[in-house]
Design a protein around this nucleic acid. Sequence first.
DNA 1: TGATAAATGCAACTCACTTGCAACTTGGAA
DNA 2: TTCCAAGTTGCAAGTGAGTTGCATTTATCA
Lengths: 148, 148
Amino acid sequence: MQLTCNLEIQMAESILDSLRAGGKKLTKPRKAILAILEQSSLPITVAEIADQLKKARAAVDLVTVYRNVAMLQELKLVNPVGLHEGQMRYEFRHGREHHHHIQCRGCGQIVDLMLCPLKKLTELIEEQTKFVIEGHALEFFGWCPQCQ
Amino acid sequence: MQLTCNLEIQMAESILDSLRAGGKKLTKPRKAILAILEQSSLPITVAEIADQLKKARAAVDLVTVYRNVAMLQELKLVNPVGLHEGQMRYEFRHGREHHHHIQCRGCGQIVDLMLCPLKKLTELIEEQTKFVIEGHALEFFGWCPQCQ
DNA sequence: TGATAAATGCAACTCACTTGCAACTTGGAA
DNA sequence: TTCCAAGTTGCAAGTGAGTTGCATTTATCA
Ligand SMILES: [Mn+2]
Ligand SMILES: [Mn+2]
Ligand SMILES: [Zn+2]
Ligand SMILES: [Zn+2]
C-alpha cells in the first residue's frame, strides 16, 4: 500500500501552505499521519491512527502521532471531538462544514450531523452572560437502528 | 462545621428514597459526599469533593468518592458534565431543570445556562438517522468578562 | 553540501480513574 | 438488644491516555 507516493497530489494545497507558514517540515511520518486523517471520514483516535499506520507498514511512534495531532490542532487544521469515551477523536477540517455527531451507546458507531442550530443562541448567550463565545461542543448519544 | 448532623432534615426525601430503593446504605462518608454535592451550585470534580471533605474534617478516601459518584450516576441522581478539562464534573439533578454550561477559556469559571434549544432538533435527527436519542452534551467555551 | 532548526523514537513520567481484597458499617431479622 | 449478611470503606496496586526529556535523525535552505 502506497501511503506516501501520491500524497503530494492528493493533499490539499491549503493544508501544505498552513504547514509551511507555521515553519513545519513535511517528514515521512507526518505525511503518513496526514494521509490517514484525510482518508478518515469520521473522527479518529490517536491510537487508531497509529494502528492504521502499523497495518499499512508505515509504523509511527504513538508519541509522534500525539505531537502531530496537537500541532495540527494549534494550526486549526483538525478539530477535536470529545465523545466522553476516555480518549479524544480528531477530524480534518479541510473541506468540511462545521457540524456535529451522534454516537450509538451500544456499538459506538458515529454518524455525522451536518448541521448546527446554535448561531442565534450563541449571540443570545453572549448578550446575557457578557462572555465572548469562541466555540461549543454538541454531541448526541443514543441507539442506532441495529442496537435498538 | 457540622456536615452530618442536620443532613436528614436538608436532604430531599426523594433522594433518600432512590437510595433505599436501590438497596443502598446511608453511611457517614456517603452522607458527607451527598451534602457536598447538594451544596454545590455548579458541577464539581471528584477531587474537589474530596478536598472539601478534608477541609471540613470529614476526610473520605478518593476511591470512595469515585465509587459513590458512579453509583449516584447509575441511579440518575447526578449528571456528568464533561468540559474536556481532563476530568469529569458532576452535579445533582434534584430540583434542577435540564440545562447547559459555559466555561471561560481563561479562568475556567463555569456559568449555568438554564436553557436547552434541542428538543425539536432531537426529533428531526431521530427521524433522519433512525437513532433513538437518549441524551446530548452541549457546552460553550469562551472568555468571561474579566478574561477578555 | 553543510548548517540549523524541527521532528522523531524511546524511556520514563503524570494523572484520572479502576480493581482486589481484608476490615468495617449499616439495617433488618431473630 | 444482639447478630449477621449485604453493602461499604480504605489501602495498595494496576490501567491507560496523554506528556516530557533527551539523544539521534531528517528536512529545508543558503
Ligand atoms: Mn464529523
Ligand atoms: Mn449546572
Ligand atoms: Zn455547532
Ligand atoms: Zn439540552
